[in-house]
Design a protein around this nucleic acid. Sequence first.
DNA 1: TCATACAAACATACACGAATGTATGTTAAT
DNA 2: ATTAACATACATTCGTGTATGTTTGTATGA
Lengths: 203, 203
Amino acid sequence: MARKTKEEAQNTRKKILDAALDVFYVKGVGHSSLEDIAEAAGVTRGAVYWHFKNKADIFNELHQEIHMSFMDRLINTQTQSSLSPLEQLSLLCIESVEDIETDLHKRKFFTVFFLKCDYAGDLAGLLSIQNAQKAESLKITESFFKRAIEKGDLPKGSDTNLLATSLYCYIGGIIHEYLRNPDFINLKKMTRPLIELYFKNMI
Amino acid sequence: MARKTKEEAQNTRKKILDAALDVFYVKGVGHSSLEDIAEAAGVTRGAVYWHFKNKADIFNELHQEIHMSFMDRLINTQTQSSLSPLEQLSLLCIESVEDIETDLHKRKFFTVFFLKCDYAGDLAGLLSIQNAQKAESLKITESFFKRAIEKGDLPKGSDTNLLATSLYCYIGGIIHEYLRNPDFINLKKMTRPLIELYFKNMI
DNA sequence: TCATACAAACATACACGAATGTATGTTAAT
DNA sequence: ATTAACATACATTCGTGTATGTTTGTATGA
């Protein structure tokens, strides 16, 4: 097979990842063969094996992608807004949840990670990788609450870990419930009320 | 093979279901073979096929089991307590979440349904069955909020659907996050604070 | 500049095992 | 006598990882 330029090889790699997301979304990770992914990417299985060790490797790479994207956004939200910390956080939550409906790419990601994989067998170890990454982002989220306390927007002595934890559970729960059953939550109508319920009342 | 009494056959069936839950919990649904389940139940694959159509059938039966159990509890909570509707609901939430940690059987169920299956292939149709059942329980949950309004515990005109939805997302999120990463939430310490955050402040 | 060697980036072939569903056999409850 | 409730055997397909083949980009040396 003709050797390609580095750029072309990167392109092939990207095509494989994109194809994998699509195939995983439709068939579930467990029922997607590397042949399915190769075909969807327009290459052969050999190419998939050249770039990735196995299916779990592909899955993990996909997760890295969305984790990085989320972290970027979290950090940018923190540093680039004229809103108060709680307003920043509230807006981030609203936008993140709304993205699930409006951004098909994101919806595929979250559907795959929440509903279309089983965190067993080859994927068993990846949950702890994901968890370590979540701990990282939780700390940053917690820092929003800390800044809010410093600004006097929250009572001194508020438990920032409890607040960050509760917010993660709530937003994660909204996304998960929506993906399980899009008819359960009309995100267009309910995102803001659901998030406001949290930010107006709970804290 | 010796024909058994009806009671013995029911016992075999129960053994298969129990074994399936254990195997699914350890290996994930996708990576559990019917041979694995048969072996764990101390029978052969023939017996599994006698009682169940296929793996999806077993999975669905397991889900029926937990759904019925939850509905019973929801209905009993509603009718048998001297607490106010919101207190009833709050206590139900606390107990349900605490059960995840203390009741291994429940933890296995929720782990299997949230993390160890991929809702694709044979399991694809089962999510909508689960969703229909959830809609049923959501209505009952909503009725707690309605009664609370009637009693004057909540403002007239409160959106009971929003409240029930938000509670489902929150409790589901807590359970999901805990199962993904037991280190993320210390349920012993955090269950009450998390639930109280909701009931004391959000509503 | 050109020739050459190496190997990256694939494509194709090989080898094998696992899991499924169905068919058939067995025995005792009814 | 019939058949429920299994156990065992049969038949097949699918998917995986590894081995091997092909071609051209790239580096190096003359």
